[in-house]
Design a protein around this nucleic acid. Structure first.
Length: 761
DNA sequence: TTTATACTGATTTTT
DNA sequence: TCAGTATAAA
């Protein structure tokens, strides 16, 4: 039995765990489902469990399979386990993301699915390029059946664990003029020829290998004594099948997750996997972690109340010893700029009380909502950072640079060849490329080889021919230099000699300087690897870059609700809670009730990010794709338990109606604000705060109810009343529903508005 | 082959 | 609104 020198006394990591957590840590034999609600110490349990197994010598590090979804989670787990055990987790070779572990297994058995062990992993960009070619070749209307759409179809098939041979043949009539399956098949064939796999293939090929080769599967059965899975509610069918096959060995499979936080259905996650766990793994033990260590009672109660509207749940009751605290607040505002103004003022308040900007997060449903916040923050100089969004390795210049390196390492990487052969512009156009492709196909060789052959003939003439020749000579030269110099230097040289850096230097676009910076950063990143191939393998699976280099800056975080999962902040702002926006109309149109429930889980995730305070906002008007739309408060607001919610205006506090109605009165202040001059109150306030010492800021500086609006209650308007609206002008009331009016505006057409926003005309 | 202009159509995101 | 792409002209 392996005992680690320097490890803490056996069981020390069990200290400070509550009974359920401890149970989850020590119940290592047999299938176990740990239902871990938000903030119940899920990661702690996972890492302690790992430590427990290792420390008691129940398995060697190499006998434990632990899977996560993101590299971040994997890193975190590795880090925390090594902290628990003291310095000794160089091992744990099978701790990683689904994809990285699947890739590792696939490299060992690649030939069983017709690949070589050095296959390349395609990113989405390559995938789309490849599909474009195939769609064009099949003569399908590429406007109706875009490469992007076909890619999502193929992805969906792969997520379900379906190879082309296993797809329901009747489905093929639905897609791409009956050629959907043909495209999938052709695409897979092309990948095989290219010796490449896309992300979906990594898992799917594993599945094929395990299913067709019982001896291989048996090896892994013998190998993995314990299996741990994080975020089980996010697994798709393919991942589920993969896990089930592997778990047949030891049967010691522990999955941790929270059905209430399943928010990735749109990319193939099946909540059903977690709902069905007990029947899938007979004899499974279920442990609920319900004690929450994060949020106050009000926040927890509000979130629990909301999520209880969902039907398909395993059900948990979160509780906390941290009673009281602030109620969840709901505020109505005029429009997005007002929302940003009010929230930024609130953040300044927070800061002026001696709290930090980094305590604060703003969580939006869609990234386009971030705009008004960014504009506002820049205007008043409030420090913020956007989390998520376009990633470093997905930027054009980085992908181009990678393509050069990929081609260098592997002369059969046709996709890389296509990408860089005319980048920068070398006068090699679509027609030349087409000739090359035809030749390559007929000769059964790579594009580069075909190019070398074809430039010997008169098939391609003039500038294209000389450029292609020069390009091949460049490649030869660079390849010869490999091994004589460090790969980072070589990369720099390639980027220079190819004219790639010059291309951006000549480009006058404002972003060009940043691109050159990024290329420098890329060289930095490469420096952490010893060889070019090692670097390339790493980045194909790890698309994120650990940005935690340097000092922690005090900044407000701005991100989508999706990227907030797993994080927590003392103060959380949740703007944009309007019907259509959140819950998203598109989600409901596409997936109906299931879509709505997922949106509700998203709301649940949002609220439970907050430790001390959660503040919800809804705007009465929102600009959608350029035109103004009136909007109604989200149904989620009405679903919040009133006892734990306060309307953020004095006048509405003691009303007994629905939350949305109680908030109606707070419209007034944003209404007034909307008319205030170019120098906003928030700005003035910011100036004051910068110079003065921070006292309690007068509450009405934000333009608090100078004038009282038409009050909440039931509607004061009747059918046929003529009304005036700030944005839509004059109109006639055609219907009333409580405080919601349907008004036929003379210019803007029929709209639904809350009566607080109109006045009698 | 490259560049300028018209058009379209639009969540959420990891690997 | 606005970005990303398809088409036309140079």
């Amino acid at each position: 039995m392996p005992t680690r020198p320097g490890a803490p006394a056996a069981g020390a990591y069990l200290e400070g765990l509550n009974p359920e957590q401890r149970d989850a840590v020590v119940s290592v034999e047999g299938p176990l489902l740990v239902l871990a609600g938000a903030g119940t110490g899920k990661t702690r349990v996972l890492t302690c469990r790992l430590a427990h197994i290792l420390n008691n010598g129940m398995a060697y590090p190499s006998q434990i399979l632990s899977v996560t979804f993101t590299n971040k989670a994997a890193r975190e787990m590795r880090h925390r386990v090594s902290e628990l055990l003291g310095q000794t987790t160089e091992g744990l070779p099978w701790l990683g993301t689904f994809h990285s572990i699947a890739a590792k297994i696939l490299r060992i058995h690649a030939e069983l699915v017709g690949l070589k062990s050095n296959f390349t992993i395609l990113d989405t960009d390559d995938q789309i390029r490849l599909l474009k070619q195939i769609i064009k070749a099949e003569n399908i209307d590429d406007k109706k059946w875009t490469a992007r759409y076909m890619a999502s179809l193929i992805d969906a098939w792969k997520n379900k664990g379906l190879t082309p041979g296993k797809c329901d043949p009747s489905e093929k009539y639905k897609f791409a003029e009956g050629k959907g399956l043909i495209i999938y098949k052709t695409y897979q064939d092309r990948l095989k020829v290219l010796n490449a796999a896309d992300f979906g293939d990594l898992l799917l090929h594993n599945l094929t290998i395990f299913q067709n080769n019982p001896d291989v599967l048996a090896r892994y059965h013998a190998k993995f004594r314990y299996i741990l899975v994080d975020e089980y509610q996010d697994t798709n069918v393919c991942q589920y099948l993969w896990l089930r096959l592997l778990a047949q060995g030891s049967n010691n499979v522990c999955v941790v997750g929270d059905d209430d936080q399943s928010i990735y259905g749109w990319r193939g996650a099946e909540v059903d996997n977690i709902l069905r766990f007990e029947s899938d793994f007979p004899g499974a033990k279920v442990i609920r972690l319900e004690r929450n260590y994060r949020s106050t009672e009000h926040i927890l109660a509000a979130a629990s109340g909301l999520i209880s509207s969902n039907k398909d749940r395993l059900g948990k009751t979160l509780w906390t010893e941290d009673d009281g605290g602030h109620k969840v607040s709901v505020t109505g505002v005029w429009d997005a700029p007002a929302e940003a103004r009010i929230i930024s003022t609130d953040i300044e308040n927070w800061y002026s009380k001696g709290r930090k900007y980094s305590d604060v997060a703003i969580l939006v449903r869609a990234s386009r909502q971030m705009r008004s916040f960014e504009e506002r923050f820049i205007q008043i100089g409030l420090p913020y950072k956007v989390i998520g969004g376009p990633r470093f390795f997905e930027r054009q210049e980085i992908r181009d640079a990678h393509a050069y390196m990929r081609l260098l390492v592997n002369d059969t990487d046709d996709l890389a060849f296509e990408r860089v052969v005319n980048t920068p512009k070398r006068g090699i156009g679509a027609t030349s490329i087409q000739k090359l492709q035809r030749a390559a196909r007929s000769m059964g060789v790579s594009l580069e080889t075909a190019t070398r052959e074809l430039t010997k003939t008169d098939e391609i003439r003039g500038k294209a021919r000389s450029s292609l020749r020069a390009f091949c000579l460049d490649l030869d030269r660079w390849r010869a230099m490999q091994g004589t110099m460090r790969h980072t230097n070589l990369a720099e040289q390639i980027l220079d000699e190819s004219g790639y850096t010059q291309m951006w230097r000549d480009n006058k676009d404002a972003k060009s300087a940043g691109r050159l910076e990024n290329l420098k950063e890329l060289i930095q990143a490469m420096n952490e690897f010893d060889t070019l191939p090692a670097y390339l393998e790493h980045i194909s699976l790890v698309m994120d870059v650990d940005k935690s280099n340097g000092v922690e800056e005090d900044q407000v975080s701005l991100m989508t609700l999706h990227s907030a999962k797993g994080l927590e902040f003392p103060l959380v702002f949740l703007p944009g809670w309007e019907e259509g926006m959140f819950p998203s109309q598109k989600s409901m149109d596409e997936s109906g009730m299931a879509g709505l429930e997922e949106e509700r889980r998203l709301a649940y995730v949002g609220i439970t990010r907050a430790r001390e305070q959660a503040k919800i906002y809804f705007a009465a008007n929102r600009q959608v794709y350029g035109s103004w739309q009136s909007s109604l408060p989200s149904r989620f607001i009405d679903e919040l338990p009133p006892a734990h919610v306060e309307a953020a205006s004095e006048s509405g506090l003691h009303d007994s109606g629905a939350v949305a109605e109680r908030v109606a009165s707070s419209f007034a202040r944003s209404f007034e604000e909307n008319k205030s001059g170019p120098v906003s109150p928030g700005w003035q306030r910011f100036q004051q705060n910068k110079t003065k010492s921070f006292g309690r800021a007068p509450k009405d500086i934000e333009g608090h109810a100078v004038r009282r609006p038409a009050k909440g209650k039931s509607s004061n308007y009747n059918k046929g009343d003529r009304v005036f609206h700030q944005k839509f002008g004059y109109g006639l009331v055609t219907e009333t529903d409580g405080t919601k009016l349907t008004v036929a505006f003379e210019k803007a057409g029929e709209k639904k508005v809350l009566d607080g926003f109109v006045e009698r005309a």
